[in-house]
Simulated scan of single mutants.
Amino acid sequence: MEATAREFNQRASQILSAAAGGETVTVTRNGVAVAKVVPIGSQEEVPSYPVGPMGDISLPDLGLPDLTDEDIEQTLRTMGG
């Protein structure tokens, strides 16, 4: 089910009843989803702890040389010129 922010404001008790009955309600503002009202215990429940800022990422291999801290510091020193 989907409801606009205005509909949510005007029909909050009906939307909450729908959620209590097992339905997930997506609330939109200007056509963009901004919130979900989900039944308690649903699989869409938000974890009570952060799962990471971005999740797993993989970076492409750019073929650049491995630099030590000393290499980086030396490069930075010579750039200050």
Rank of each mutant, 00 (worst) to 15 (best):
E73K: 11
L59K: 00
A33C: 08
R77K: 14
K36N: 07
P53Q: 05
V46I: 09
D61V: 02
E23C: 11
V25C: 08
E73I: 07
P50H: 01
P50D: 05
E70R: 04
I57K: 00
R11T: 09
G52M: 03
E73T: 09
P47K: 06
P53T: 00
I57W: 01
Q10W: 13
P60G: 04
D69M: 05
A12L: 14
E23A: 14
D56P: 00
T24F: 10
A18L: 12
A18E: 09
G31S: 11
S58D: 05
L16P: 01
V38Q: 07
D66H: 08
E73P: 01
R29P: 12
E23V: 13
K36T: 06
F8I: 02
E23I: 13
T78F: 12
S58H: 00
E44T: 03
T4Y: 03
P47A: 09
G81C: 08
S13Y: 14
K36W: 09
Q74C: 05
S42H: 03
E23G: 10
G21F: 10
V27F: 12
D61G: 07
M79T: 10
P53L: 05
L64D: 06
S17Q: 14
A20V: 12
D71V: 00
E7A: 03
G81D: 12
D66Q: 11
T78N: 14
A19F: 11
M79E: 09
D61S: 07
E70T: 06
I40H: 11
D69I: 07
R29G: 15
S42K: 04
L67P: 04
T75K: 11
I72S: 04
L64V: 03
G55N: 02
R77Q: 13
T78Y: 13
T68R: 01
V38W: 03
I15H: 01
M54I: 04
F8L: 10
M1W: 00
A20R: 15
A35S: 09
V32R: 14
I15V: 11
K36H: 12
A3H: 00
P60E: 06
T26M: 13
G31D: 11
G41T: 03
V25K: 06
G63A: 02
A20Q: 15
P53D: 04
A18K: 05
P60M: 02
G31R: 11
T24Q: 14
P60R: 04
Q43E: 10
D69Q: 10
D56Y: 05
T75V: 08
L62F: 07
L76G: 03
T4A: 02
R77I: 10
L59I: 00
V34Y: 13
A19P: 07
Q43D: 08
I40F: 12
L67N: 01
M54V: 01
S48K: 09
D69F: 09
L76P: 03
T24I: 14
V46F: 06
I72F: 05
I15F: 10
I57G: 01
I72N: 03
S13D: 15
G41K: 03
A18M: 10
S17P: 02
I72M: 08
G52Q: 00
